[in-house]
Amino acid sequence: MYPPESTWKFENFFALVSRSISEYSNSTLLMEEFPDAMMTSTRNPADISKLHKYIVGVAQDEMIEDEVIIPYTAKGIIGEIRANMSVIKEEYEYSHIKLTVRSNAIDLERLKKSMLGLSTDDS
């Protein structure tokens, strides 16, 4: 499925996939070539856990928290929020729901644009 060796770059994140790291006599040479690397093995559950925590941490660092007010008359907005954002807090009012969400800036801006024109009676 993957070539024998390849490198992917996601901003500052590199993944080196190799069938064998035997070309490096030891991990010291690998760390010299890739000083910011996180040495992991797919066969070690602790390494996978460490890598997962790192990726989740990077994603969460880029998220921002904001409050959105959604009138009950809005169709599909809450489903979109739950699909694309983390809901931190929910408050139910007479005419609307107030949600505190964590999201990346792009999804949050898209939500705000889709909500233009929607209004609540008592906000």
Rank of each mutant, 00 (worst) to 15 (best):
P4D: 15
S6D: 10
T7Y: 05
T7N: 09
W8A: 05
F10E: 11
E11L: 15
F13I: 15
F14H: 12
A15R: 03
L16W: 03
S18L: 12
R19K: 04
R19A: 10
S20G: 09
E23F: 14
Y24F: 14
Y24P: 14
S25R: 07
N26D: 12
S27D: 08
T28N: 02
T28W: 03
L29Y: 06
L29A: 07
L30C: 03
M31P: 10
M31L: 10
E32L: 11
E32I: 10
E33S: 07
P35W: 11
P35E: 10
P35Q: 06
D36F: 14
D36M: 11
D36G: 14
D36A: 12
T40D: 08
T40H: 03
T42E: 01
T42C: 10
T42A: 06
R43K: 11
N44T: 13
N44P: 11
A46K: 09
D47P: 15
I48L: 14
I48G: 07
K50E: 11
L51P: 13
L51K: 02
K53Q: 06
K53D: 01
Y54T: 11
Q60I: 13
E62W: 04
E62I: 09
E62T: 08
M63Y: 08
M63H: 04
I64V: 13
I64A: 03
D66A: 06
D66T: 04
V68Y: 03
V68E: 04
V68L: 07
I69C: 02
I70P: 01
I70S: 04
T73K: 05
A74I: 08
K75P: 02
K75Y: 09
G76F: 10
G76E: 03
I77C: 01
I77G: 02
I78E: 02
E80V: 12
I81Y: 01
R82Y: 11
A83I: 07
A83E: 11
M85P: 00
S86D: 06
I88V: 12
K89F: 03
E90R: 01
E91H: 00
Y92D: 03
E93F: 09
Y94A: 06
H96C: 05
I97M: 03
K98A: 05
L99T: 06
V101N: 00
S103E: 00
N104A: 03
